[in-house]
Nucleic acid binder design. Structure first.
Lengths: 141, 141
DNA sequence: AGTCAACTGTTGCATACGCAAGCTTCTCTG
DNA sequence: CAGAGAAGCTTGCGTATGCAACAGTTGACT
């Protein structure tokens, strides 16, 4: 049964290393950029980000702190509910995503393409899609 | 493509939470117990553990420190090569593994059984096995 | 209106990990 | 056989993260 653990950590470690080395971003941060790019107004509530990237609320707070410091996102207020604050994608964040995303996809395809053919890839995708319903993976407008 | 990572990480977070809550062990620690239980003399070199559980050498040092503190493993010297030190499974460690492993396997099968039938499970295992092997054997880019 | 539970977000503390540097020991080469 | 370099391991430091506690806000129920 250990192959589950092994496959997960092997993939994420390899992809994360490349991402950090080439672009200075973690996978969670890229995921946030992608989610925001596809969201209306390029903005999401922090609590929703928390669910979608599977981080605790405090983890999201700190990740967005980092991303604000580098100018990738901004904070936005909510007029209807003073509790919530939005994460809003900046122009710089959008540019960064468009710079990073092709490399990231290429890395994934290189890793998986070395051992899987197209049919197996589709099988795998179909199986895993049932585990966690995820957004499609193209940056939004 | 992000669903590959997302699905795995959703599963492993769930499994890890159960493991920590019910038995006070991380998945890496369980993996170490399992590897040692299958190894000759119930012992392995730290460097080999490092590769098998995909942790850095320093990560292994600290994990084994924790496991020694709770009596699950012991340190062993190597007479032929004074550089290497072994991690050796104790009786307590063996007992712990026998206590933990059935629960862990049951949790995995429960989580996956909710979504897959037996045939799909075998497909998935086969595919994931190759992910782990492939990345592990990479010469380094 | 008043109260209280639920929700959103942040902060203090603890933890697990990686990387770079260092130490010791081994091995290989000239 | 001496020195260089590799191998195994540990340590110092930085970082990403979770949990628990907290504060502010909202809404629901009395």
């Amino acid at each position: 049964m250990g192959q589950l653990i092994g496959a997960h950590s092997a993939l994420t470690q390899e992809l994360s290393a490349q991402l950090v080395e080439q672009h200075g971003l973690t996978m969670s941060e890229v995921e946030v950029l992608l989610l925001l790019s596809r969201a209306p107004e390029h903005s999401m509530r922090r609590i929703d980000l928390s669910r979608d990237v599977r981080l605790s609320p405090s983890g999201v707070t700190r990740m967005l702190d980092r991303m604000e410091a580098t100018g990738l996102v901004e904070k936005g207020a909510c007029k209807q509910d003073a509790r919530v604050s939005y994460a809003v994608l900046t122009e710089a964040g959008m540019s960064k995503l468009q710079e990073v995303w092709p490399d990231h996809v290429a890395a994934i395809e290189r890793l998986l393409g070395e051992r899987f053919d197209a049919r197996e890839l589709n099988e795998l995708k179909e199986l895993l899609n049932r585990v966690a319903d995820q957004v499609e993976c193209e940056p939004g407008s």
